[in-house]
Amino acid sequence: MNEQRGSAEVPIAEEPTTSEPITEEPSLADLARRLLAVDTGGWTPDVVKALSDGLGWAPGGTAEHPVLVTGRSSGDAPLRPVGTYEQRYASGESYVELAVPVATAAPDAAAQAAAFRAAREELTSALGRPSVMGSHGDMGPFYDSGPLWGSPFVRWRGMPDTLELRAGKAGPELVLQPTDPAENWFWRQGSGEEHAISGFFGSNSDPANAGLGFPGGWRARSWETVTRSLGDFLETLPAEAVALGTGFGMPFYGRTGDGAPLLFDVACDDRLSIGCFAPDGVDAAALGWGTVAEHPGTASIWRDDDPVWRVDAGGPGEPKGRALAEMLVATARAAGVTEPAGLIVGGEAEYVDVYHVRYYGLGLPTG
């Protein structure tokens, strides 16, 4: 083709041709919409073709470890077949999830929490507020273990499928899953045995949560159990608070011969601070507590002398969970709390933003 410009003919170069279409990697929001639009076909073996065709991806991997080859810079997406640990919770499905890595980050807690938070904010802008949020703790769905820095998740619950943003080993993952198997697994962990369920689980009043069931909890039977569960919770709380974009305020009361006075106030946003209301006769300093002079950052949370005793445990990746838990347990016992059931999480702690939260992993009563 020629274009006439004045009296000279200037050839116009033709566009280069290619046998492959030029495509851009879809945004996270677009990926989420595409996942939600896919007909999963009941998660039978045909799901591989349905997902592949619907997303423009290709099946790969092996029969034991199938993946969808996404072409995304963050990696391919494993499919989880129904196996030994999944079979009793499935109901005709051959797969229980497709996990798509959406970002990678440095392995430290601060970087991982920031990557999760950025993904959560983009998805919330596109899909609306998640109907469920929480932490899987050290035991995720179907007995998977989570990252050491924390296991936060947010979930857009639906039927028959649910979309979840989950902390993965290298960064956040967007997980499409049939709703019933994951919820059946969670429900059946309410056996009452120590450490039967870990983490915490929060739901809001979204109509999507209609019919959502909640398992029974468990109760710590020894101070060693309390130390472990409380230590695990406190160690990852700042990173999970940053990732979830919310703060936690948790009073702890101690049942003694004088009633159940306030003993501790746990405050966590981007840093974890704990205040101690030790009764007269308890040597709080000897137990490891400091004052505002030693922890000046806590002045923005509490007045200089109320509570007198406090500790600034740090931000993501910094709290020493076991040491903090040992200090709290020793203080509670010195204050006259004689058994684990006497350490009570205040009911105020159950209301986090618009979510009603159940602290399954603590194994402590709430009241």
Rank of each mutant, 00 (worst) to 15 (best):
V266K: 01
P238H: 00
F201L: 03
L163Y: 12
G146L: 05
G83Q: 15
V242R: 14
D283Y: 01
L163N: 04
Y253S: 01
A77P: 09
P107G: 07
G321M: 11
H295T: 13
M139I: 12
R155S: 14
A119G: 09
F116R: 11
W187C: 10
L328D: 03
R255V: 04
I301Y: 07
G61R: 11
G158R: 13
G361V: 05
L98P: 11
L364I: 11
P21K: 03
M327E: 05
V154I: 01
P81V: 04
T62R: 02
F186R: 15
N204L: 00
E86P: 14
D206Y: 04
A58N: 14
S191V: 14
V345D: 05
V226F: 00
D76C: 00
D283P: 05
P81F: 02
V47R: 08
P207M: 07
G342T: 05
V69D: 10
D206C: 02
T70K: 11
A330E: 15
E93Y: 00
F116M: 15
T124N: 14
P45N: 04
M327F: 02
A99P: 09
F264Q: 05
T256I: 01
F116E: 13
A210N: 08
A323H: 01
G290I: 04
D353K: 13
G288K: 01
L324V: 06
E326H: 12
P172V: 07
G83S: 13
G275Q: 13
G314A: 05
G202I: 08
E64K: 15
G54H: 06
F277T: 00
R129M: 02
W57V: 13
K49W: 08
P207Y: 02
T291I: 02
L35W: 07
F153R: 10
V132S: 10
E183C: 03
G6E: 01
L127C: 05
S27D: 06
P66K: 15
A103G: 08
W302H: 01
A29E: 03
A349R: 02
R72M: 12
A220I: 09
A113Q: 04
A330H: 06
G92S: 03
A182Q: 12
L35T: 12
S73W: 12
E121D: 11
A313Y: 02
T338D: 11
A32M: 02
L212R: 15
R120D: 02
F200D: 07
G192L: 14
L79P: 00
D280V: 11
W289Q: 06
S125D: 11
F277N: 08
E93D: 10
D30H: 07
R188D: 14
D108F: 10
W43S: 08
Q177V: 09
E318F: 04
E194G: 03
L148R: 13
P181E: 09
C276R: 02
W309A: 10
G290K: 10
P279H: 14
W302V: 00
Y355E: 01
P130H: 12
P307F: 01
A109N: 04
G171D: 06
